[in-house]
Amino acid sequence: MATTSKYNIYINEKSLIITSEVPKDLINYQLVEAQSFDFEKFYQALRKNPNSLFVMVCNDPKMVFKTIKDKVRVIEAAGGLVKNEDGKYLFIYRNGRWDLPKGKLEPKEKKKEAAVREVEEECGLKVKKLNEKIIKTYHVYEIKGKPVLKISHWYAMQAKGNQKLVPQLEEGITEVKWFAKQDFSIIKSNTFGNILEVINFVC
């Protein structure tokens, strides 16, 4: 049975969308053949491909994604989109870009617990309330020349806005700051595709 699920895998500044139907508003993309698809070969070939958006149309995106996941190393992470009483949202500045606090799950740690822990560690604040799960995002990076798939689980959170924010410098974080929605253009102009997916839920 066909599924309508869609997976957007971010790979550096590029992305691969696995879907049962090409989104109507999509332009300037390259189609990718689903049959005999080898993700590692695709990943290596991206370096010489000038295109930035790739689309694979298939009957069962979930199964195709599972096939990719089964063949690469997978790291689970969790993080949060934190809102304060003034309606502002918490962002971190890490390695030259605006980002959201997140990190890898510890052994046997639950996703919700990891999300809160990472937010508190990276930003130096206490989370007042953990709300619903927002989304899962997928991005690929490289370890020892091999692609690694990071699956990040994002949760909505609440916190008091008058806390002293302390960036976790050892994680490359140099600034932690609250932003109002009307200032999100600053974030959007210098962030990652997966972060845009998360903040689209409040824009």
Rank of each mutant, 00 (worst) to 15 (best):
G103Q: 11
W178I: 06
I68N: 03
D70W: 07
Y155A: 03
P101M: 06
Q168F: 12
Q163L: 03
K129A: 04
K164V: 15
L105H: 07
A77W: 12
S152E: 13
K69C: 06
Q182A: 04
K177W: 04
H153V: 02
K102Y: 13
V72R: 08
D70G: 10
E76I: 05
Y141T: 12
K129N: 00
D183M: 05
K128A: 00
E121G: 07
K181G: 02
K160L: 14
L125P: 03
I134H: 08
V116F: 05
R94C: 04
Y89V: 01
V140L: 03
P147T: 02
I173A: 01
Q163K: 07
D183S: 10
Y155C: 01
K102P: 01
K150L: 03
V64Y: 02
H139D: 08
V148Q: 05
K144E: 15
K104V: 04
F179A: 02
A77N: 14
E122N: 07
A115P: 10
K83T: 09
Y138K: 11
V148E: 00
K136I: 01
N162G: 03
K126H: 15
N190T: 07
K88W: 02
I135W: 07
F192I: 03
S152N: 10
K177R: 12
E106Q: 15
K102M: 05
L165Y: 08
S189A: 13
I143Y: 13
L149T: 03
G193V: 09
G145W: 14
G172R: 07
Q163P: 08
I143R: 08
I151K: 00
T174E: 12
K102E: 08
N84Q: 00
N95M: 10
L130D: 04
K181L: 15
L165N: 00
G79L: 07
T174L: 02
G193S: 08
H153P: 00
K108R: 08
R73T: 09
V64L: 12
P167H: 10
A78R: 15
I151M: 02
N95A: 05
M157V: 14
K160I: 02
Y141P: 02
A115N: 13
Q168Y: 12
L105S: 06
E142A: 10
C123M: 00
K150G: 00
E118I: 01
Q182M: 06
G145D: 06
V140A: 02
N131G: 03
K111S: 12
K164T: 15
Y141N: 10
W98A: 11
I186M: 04
N95G: 00
H153M: 07
F65V: 00
E109I: 11
I195L: 09
G145L: 12
E197P: 00
A159S: 10
S185Q: 12
G145A: 03
I135H: 11
P101R: 08
F91C: 06
D99R: 08
S189E: 15
I92P: 01
W98I: 07
I195D: 09
I135G: 06
K188E: 12
P101S: 13
V198G: 10
D183L: 07
G172N: 14
G193R: 13
Q158D: 14
K160G: 04
